[in-house]
Nucleic acid binder design. Structure first.
Lengths: 237, 237
DNA sequence: AAGTGGTCTAGACCACCCG
DNA sequence: GGGTGGTCTAGACCACTTT
């Protein structure tokens, strides 16, 4: 089913990115947009709310919807947007090395992070990311095997997310991320080009399906000089 | 004006935190809630959408609204929630030291980060945060003086946010945050107890008012072992 | 006073899930 | 088939900003 407010949202994004209105200028009013798109005002408001959530506009009562400056890098470094999407969008020169893929039985570590029973089958994927000749990111993915019939080197080489959402029809709905800075463990030093760096940035990522079940746990380890996280937060009063 | 959906949202938060429903259980349906709170379904849906955005529930089509596990630490380490709120909520043993407060004229650095004209007056505040005897955070705040008549040591000692939103009636609407890891500069080593650490986590924070104007730039420097950032992200399809 | 976005209503139809 | 959440409508009143 085509959602009208989503079509309007996409249309407005396209017009904003074409710079039909400049930074600080006002979008047409909700009533004008309602007439232009031949719909109801509530539907326009849904589209504008998405624009607002994504950081395209700021709504000001009594005035209108102001176009705000949008950081081009405004997406998670590792999370709901897949690494492949990120690389494609930024047109980076990156190689992915699949270090290991296999089926494990849940040990206490996985039991804790994935909230599964002992010996529950879990897929493991270990990958490194190479930027201009240096391996600076180490990604360890753990997926509950329940939903995933097979995980191959080819899939991990391309994009696990594309496989999950494309081939398997799974829907990721939300994720919790935790970022800390840690001392490297032996595995980091072994698989990454750490040089003199004696810290790694550790991103723990818990991914949930649309039925609210925990499905995947990922540890992403970044060399500090290649780490960058950008966040856009709206205050709700 | 009292917003009905906000009252319902608060009521439901209170009921969820009282564990009227357990993790994984379903909230009453929208129609039941509509009758219970004597309102329309759209108003109930607004309240539920806020619950969903805040990570209390996950809506599942055809089934209902599932209570999800909510991380107690699910708020920004430094950003839209003020440091004071954070400390109060977590009941931490923290001291704030105001190292410097004063009025500056915008130099090229401030011109870039605050997008102001040369020599525009800007308040500066430099504070360190002491946890169990060690100074582990350094906060440098820059506020465009336009909106702020006076900034005193007392205000900085307590909470700048409380002053802005309470006393001055300013409304913060959104912020952009950028997290990186850097080598400490001399000032860091001077004002913080860095010990052997040769990295600091740098959080750059750009704060906007409700008329979408940039108002404040903050650099928050954390000793790596005391840094932790938690993020909850919802995927929009 | 006119225009803006914010809230609220009552009703409708749809897609999806489950017994 | 009955219940669930998702979308959409047309209209109303409010608070706020600008003219």
């Amino acid at each position: 089913m085509k959602r009208k407010y989503d079509l309007i949202y996409r249309s407005l994004v396209e017009r904003i990115e074409r710079e039909e209105w400049g930074i600080g200028e006002l979008l047409p009013s909700e009533n004008e947009l309602k007439d232009h798109y031949r719909t109801s005002r509530e539907t326009i408001r849904k589209a504008l709310n998405v624009l607002s959530q994504k950081g395209y506009i700021q709504k000001v009562r009594g005035k209108g919807s102001v176009i705000i400056e949008r950081n081009k890098f405004n997406f998670p470094v590792s999370g709901l947007v897949s690494f492949k999407e990120l690389v494609d969008k930024m047109d980076l020169d990156v190689k992915t090395h699949v270090e290991d893929v296999g089926l494990l039985k849940a040990d206490p570590f996985l039991q804790e992070h994935l909230q599964v029973a002992k010996d529950e089958p879990v897929w493991q994927s270990i990958r490194t990311r190479e930027f201009s000749g240096e391996r600076v990111i180490l990604d360890k993915d753990f997926l509950i095997a329940d939903h995933v019939p097979n995980l191959t080197t080819e899939i991990c080489q391309d994009s696990i997310y594309a496989y999950l959402e494309g081939e398997l029809g799974l829907t990721i709905s939300f994720a919790k991320k935790e970022i800390t800075v840690e001392k490297p463990i032996e595995e980091d030093a072994c698989l990454m080009d750490l040089g003199d760096f004696n810290h790694v940035v550790l991103i723990r990522n818990y991914v949930y399906l649309d039925d609210a079940t925990l499905f995947q746990y990922t540890e992403s380890r970044h060399r500090p000089d290649r780490f960058r996280f950008v966040d856009f937060a709206r205050r709700h009063h």
